[in-house]
Amino acid sequence: MNDYIICMDASGDIIADIAREHNVAFVPMEYSLGDEMRTSHGCEEEEVLKKFYDGQRNGDLTKTSQISPFMYEEYFKQYLEAGKSILYFCLSSGLSSTFNSSKLAAENLKEKYPEQEVLPVDTLAATGGIGILVERAIENQKNGMDIHENYNAITAIVPKLRHYFMVQDLMYLKRGGRVSAATAIVGSALNIKPMLEIDKNGKLITVDKKRGNKAAMTSLYKFFAENFDQESGNTVYICDADTPELAKELEQRVRESCPGVEVRRTMLSPIIGAHTGPGMLSMILVGK
């Protein structure tokens, strides 16, 4: 079971060069910008992402579509028919039904492809959290781990992932049912920047509020300083929804305080950006 591919869905964020170099596969996901339906195949070009977030700023509504078990089966078949098993990294089951759909697809494919396997990982993560796990899986595979060893090693890390982020407007999360209407209305008042985490069950929770972007960015840096543990993992992801100035300042503060850290900067996938809105900024790492 050492002949397997590493696959992630398009809601995750990873450095494009890393994905290309190691042949990471992406399950495509659909999203809309206004009346236009689009498909994300992962690691979108910056020009596409900027157009997406500019569209949100101009009032275009954005939403995403779920992946059905049938769609997963059709996607996975191309690799199974080539004799390869699949280690698949999926958006948190606390945020989407895609993990359950991928599990059902994997079970349906067992009879037809008994020599191969599809192992979905419930990452309890999103965006760069999935990227961190995929990077670990790449290293594990290079070091000779078979698919089951790799799956077990990765699932042991999942509870240690930490996501902390700010959003400009909670109304995007409210539209997708991720936070309540009352929380969204309160959080959107008077330049208050809500601070959110993904909890141990992979669900979004609001944990703090900061007045203005600078205070929110400082809170993200403080989160890094309190939670980063170089022995647990030296890679952190800073993902932003087209707010490069704040992301760059956060990166500089992280590098100055911990020169050896591997900082990955990416723009946020439109699959997640559809629900967070423009101006989101995150700090994602493996915690103590």
Rank of each mutant, 00 (worst) to 15 (best):
L173N: 05
M166D: 06
N152I: 02
D169C: 12
Y164M: 07
A156T: 10
E111Q: 14
L119E: 00
I154V: 13
T155R: 10
T127S: 15
E115Q: 15
S92L: 03
H148Q: 08
T155L: 05
H163R: 03
G128L: 00
I157A: 00
R136S: 07
I157M: 05
K110H: 11
A156K: 14
S102P: 11
R162V: 06
V121C: 04
N140Y: 11
S96H: 06
I147T: 11
E115F: 12
T123W: 01
V134R: 09
S93E: 10
L109V: 10
N143C: 01
Q141N: 03
A137C: 07
R175T: 12
C90L: 04
I147L: 07
S96P: 13
G129F: 13
M166W: 08
S93Y: 11
A181F: 15
C90H: 07
V121F: 02
I138A: 05
S180Y: 10
C90I: 11
A105E: 03
D169A: 09
S102N: 03
Y172P: 15
Y151N: 01
E107Q: 09
S92A: 10
M166H: 05
E135V: 03
L170A: 13
H148P: 08
G131K: 01
E107Y: 00
F165L: 14
D146Y: 09
A153I: 01
V158H: 03
T123V: 05
D146A: 07
V121M: 04
L104G: 01
K142T: 02
V167T: 10
N100K: 09
R178I: 03
P120M: 00
L161H: 02
E149P: 03
Y113L: 05
A137D: 00
I157C: 01
K174V: 09
Y151S: 00
V167D: 00
N140C: 11
M166S: 15
S101G: 13
L109I: 07
T123D: 07
T127I: 12
M166L: 14
R162E: 07
N152F: 12
H148L: 09
L161G: 08
A106D: 04
M171D: 08
P114K: 06
Q116T: 15
G131M: 00
Q116M: 14
L124H: 15
S93N: 11
A125G: 13
A126D: 10
G177K: 05
N140T: 00
I130R: 01
E115P: 12
D122A: 12
H163V: 08
E117L: 10
E149D: 08
I147C: 04
L119I: 15
S97C: 09
P120Y: 02
L109D: 08
M145T: 02
E107S: 07
A153R: 04
P114V: 07
A181D: 12
T155S: 12
E115L: 15
Q116L: 08
T123N: 08
A137M: 08
A181L: 13
G144L: 03
L124N: 13
N152Y: 12
A156C: 03
T127D: 11
P159T: 08
F165T: 05
S93L: 06
A106M: 06
H163G: 06
G94V: 06
F165C: 10
L170H: 04
N100Y: 09
S97I: 07
L133D: 02
